[in-house]
Nucleic acid binder design. Structure first.
Length: 491
RNA sequence: CGGGGUGUAGCGUAGCCUGGUAUCGCGCCACAUUUGGGAUGUGGAGGUCGUAGGUUCGAAUCCUGCCACCCCGACCA
């Protein structure tokens, strides 16, 4: 296959699109804004799901499933929620097609108009809280700790593979609590779960923070988030966890009876991450040779490529290769033996690099003779000849090293791309020339934030949770500020 | 939705300005030789040139509409 190569440094979007296609992760479908996630890409998503799902369950959550369709009337109940999502809703208005008697074409049957339109869910707060009303009577019914894995639809104007598609896959947690404190603790707990997942599994360092009012989720009191930094210096919101207060309980009249026999509105949270994480993964680690996968997410962690010239060599090589394959498999390593003999080793090397397989083991006649193998790691492209006897214990260790190295590299990159500035000129210089996060004072008003966005195209990504108190002057207005916030240009 | 660009075989493309039914590479199929960084040879299959109209004896090529996708904005996870 002749592969079009695009350099990351020359055309970042082109590089990204090319990589998604060449690594066999996904492709554009014939449906506008919707993508087809291919088996290899989906395998990575499944690993993300498994890791997240395990963490959700460890923190006491259960999975459930709610309808894809939401009656329009539900949507109108929470005012700011409608405002936030109205512009991007797909709406079902009819339930039947028919053959037009004149043109013989299949058309929407005008007689099959729905009494009430159905919204294809952009998020499920409304239908879930409508359901919670009937589930919750007493404090004994609380908390409810649910998650659902689902697809949602947001009719965005412009889409990008994985980062923003019309339909996307995600999980959304929806919890109900008796007290504000408990709900806030839940919100923060899930933020920690996301951060832990991002850093330890995706190997993407993230900044935990809280959103400014402008960037808050529609219907939330507070939105917590994790923000990652991509290799082009742009920030990416990788997950959000919302404290919804009693907004949805009030909108859907969800009350519970306390121990003291009083009625109170229920407190809510919601939290989600999506297939956008695939985009974060790709844009955090990959290079001009293709995808770079952290071992903990790689569907194939180690690939064995046998090399042989003559049939009698092939037999010996394959025998050894099979042996190593079994050995590593027993160690719990996700190993693949690529014995396709119509493809040359060189082709396979390049192909597995494109797909980001963390470790490649090549074994040829020379190795059989010396009881060695050639081990190449994807992250650094280093190759070493390893004694075959060491494979069993060294490979699992090497995988962990690669995981750590990828994370460290991303962390170093981020550290080099957080700049503290004190003036407007420094601010613009940092955004334009240094790229990345810019830590600056802001007077706390939405108007100022809006103005800065207009002038610089940078938004407040978050107010970091571990932010030190530091008094200063807003970079735009010169007004007093009590802490720095993180700005960046973002996806 | 505004600005720019692209659409020709599974992929990447030439041809378009100056109309005459399509070029090349990769891939695919068969056979042989090969295999330590994207193998080679020989033979073969594969195309309503995005789509609908128009101009013309004749359209991939000229004109008009539409659609899709990509990039840059606005919007957003």
């Amino acid at each position: 296959m002749e592969i079009k190569k695009v350099k990351r440094s020359e055309d970042y979007s082109g590089w990204y699109n090319n990589l998604v296609k060449n690594a066999d992760l996904a492709e554009h479908s014939d449906v506008k804004g919707c993508m087809i996630i291919k088996p290899y890409g989906y395998a990575i998503w499944e690993k993300m799901q498994a890791e997240l799902d395990r963490r959700f369950k460890e923190t006491g959550h259960q999975n459930a499933y709610f309808p894809l369709f939401i009656p329009k009337s539900f949507f109108t109940k929470e005012a700011s929620h409608v405002d936030g999502f109205a512009k991007e809703c797909a709406v079902v208005t009819h339930y039947r097609l028919k053959v037009d008697p004149i043109t013989k074409e299949i058309v929407v049957d005008p007689d099959a108009k729905l009494e009430e339109e159905l919204i294809v869910r952009p998020t499920s707060e409304t239908i879930i809280w409508n359901t919670y009303r009937s589930w919750i009577q007493s404090y004994r019914d609380l908390p409810i700790l649910l998650n659902q894995w689902a697809n949602v639809v947001r009719w965005e104007m412009r889409t990008r593979l994985f980062l923003r598609t019309t339909e996307f896959l995600w999980q959304e947690g929806h919890t109900a609590h008796a007290t504000a404190d408990e709900a806030i603790a839940e919100t923060k707990q899930m933020l920690e779960v996301y951060a832990d997942f991002a850093e330890n599994i995706l190997a993407v360092p993230v900044i935990k923070g809280i959103k400014s009012a402008n960037e808050r989720f529609a219907g939330a009191i507070d939105t917590y988030c994790i923000e990652g930094l991509m290799q082009d210096g742009k920030a990416l919101q990788m997950g959000t966890s919302h404290f919804l207060g009693q907004n949805f309980a009030k909108a859907f009249d969800v009350k519970y009876v306390t121990k003291e026999n009083t009625k109170e509105y229920v407190w809510a949270t919601s939290w989600g991450v999506s297939t956008r994480l695939m985009g974060a993964l790709i844009m955090s680690h990959s290079d001009d040779e293709g995808l770079v996968l952290p071992p903990r997410l790689a569907p194939i962690q180690v690939v064995i490529v046998p090399i042989s010239r003559k049939p009698e060599e092939k037999e010996l090589v394959m025998e050894k290769a099979n042996h190593y394959f079994q050995l590593l498999k027993k160690q719990g390593v996700l190993v693949k033996l690529d014995d396709r003999d119509h493809l040359s080793p060189g082709f396979k090397f390049a192909d597995y690099e494109l797909k980001g397989v963390p470790v490649r083991i090549a074994i040829g006649p020379r190795d059989v003779q010396n009881e060695t193998v050639e081990v190449a790691r994807r992250d650094t492209k280093e190759k070493q000849v390893m004694s075959a006897a060491d494979l069993e214990h060294k490979i699992p260790h090497l995988l962990e090293q690669i995981q750590a190295n990828i994370y460290q590299r991303a962390l170093d990159y981020r550290s080099e791309h957080i700049h503290a500035v004190n003036t407007w000129d420094e601010f613009m210089d940092a955004l334009d020339n240094k790229t990345g996060f810019v830590s600056a004072h802001w007077d706390g008003s939405s108007e100022t934030e809006e103005k800065i966005k207009e002038m610089s195209k940078a938004t407040i990504r978050c107010i970091p949770l571990d932010n030190p108190q530091e008094f200063g002057k807003c970079i735009l207005t010169g007004n007093d500020s009590k802490e720095r916030v993180l700005f960046a240009r973002a996806y």
